[in-house]
């Protein structure tokens, strides 16, 4: 965007961006540094040797995967409906969904207390997956619908003229073309589900169903708070997310660039 023709200008640009990024890097360094304080790498070994760790990872993976599958399926179906199909009062439904964007998790807590217990969902993954998905879906539908609006109707119509049904059109045309936005949806949903603290804390009470976000709790007692190990578990918890982002980075950016949020 900015043109830097001379060598000096290039160096200046590089320095400017480095200086600007430093404040963003600083807390990350403090985090890693803190996790190595006291016992050093031993902190990581202690965290990794928590016997429940693999279980917690699995549970978080179950919750994240479950949420991603539900969000992806519902988002694609609905975004397709909103973008390409005939629905009377489309805007009304869409607005109803968007209004749900404004709802913070805290507000859901009390109603969910009673709902999950009456539906017998308390202490099951569903008590976390369903609310998480419900809160995520409005935003992802918004993204996916805008993305699908960018796919020419003619492409879809042509397929229909060739005798392919709506379902086939959806399956063979829409789904492959929407891969970039799917990557964005997956990354965003993964972040939301993997990082969620409140819902698993309250609704997954059995030690065998608890998620990775509760890992730091192992090092926080009533009277003690081992910051070094809390930070080490934080770093360990964040690694899968960073890996997922790195893997999907290109698709993620392409998804967002195709007018997803304009």
């Amino acid at each position: 965007m900015f043109e830097a023709r001379t060598r000096r200008a290039k160096v200046v640009l590089q320095i400017v961006i480095t200086l600007l990024v430093l404040p963003f890097l600083f807390p990350l360094i403090a985090m890693v540094q803190g996790s190595l304080a006291g016992a050093g790498w031993q902190n990581y070994l202690t965290v990794l040797s928590v016997p429940e760790l693999p279980l917690f990872f699995r549970n978080s993976a179950v919750v994240a995967l479950g949420t991603i599958v539900i969000v992806y399926a519902l988002t694609m179906l609905a975004a397709f409906g909103f973008s390409k199909l005939h629905i009377r009062g489309k805007e009304v439904y869409f607005w109803m969904l968007l209004a749900a964007l404004t709802l913070p998790e805290v507000v859901l807590l009390t109603p969910l207390f009673s709902t999950t217990t009456t539906l017998n969902l308390y202490n099951t993954y569903w008590a976390v997956i369903l609310p998480l998905a419900a809160l995520q879906v409005p935003f992802t539908i918004l993204l996916a619908r805008n993305f699908m609006n960018g796919i020419p109707d003619e492409l879809f119509d042509a397929a229909r003229v060739d005798g392919a049904g709506t379902v086939k059109g959806f399956w063979y045309i829409i789904l492959p073309l929407t891969r970039p936005i799917a990557a964005a949806i997956i990354v965003l949903t993964l972040i939301g589900a993997w990082n969620d603290y409140l819902l698993p804390l309250v609704f997954l009470v059995d030690p065998t169903t608890q998620t990775i976000t509760l890992l730091p709790q192992f090092f926080v007692g009533q009277f003690s708070n081992d910051q070094t190990k809390v930070l080490a578990s934080a770093v360990i918890t964040a690694i899968p997310e960073i890996a997922a982002y790195l893997c999907l980075q290109r698709l993620f950016e392409r998804g967002l660039s195709a007018g997803a949020l304009k």
Binding site: I70, A73, L74, T75, L77, A78, F80, G81, F82, K84, L85, H86, I87, Y93, M96, L97, A100, L103, V107, L108, P111, L112, T115, L130, P131, A133, A134, L135, V137, P138, I141, D157, R160, T166
Partner: peptide
């Protein structure tokens, strides 16, 4: 020509709008 889409948006509406509006 445009097929009807109610059923396509129904699952999302049931989950999000249903759960969230119930909570509200």
């Amino acid at each position: 020509l445009q097929p009807r889409g109610y059923l396509w948006i129904l699952p999302a509406l049931v989950l999000s709008v249903g759960l969230i509006y119930y909570c509200i």
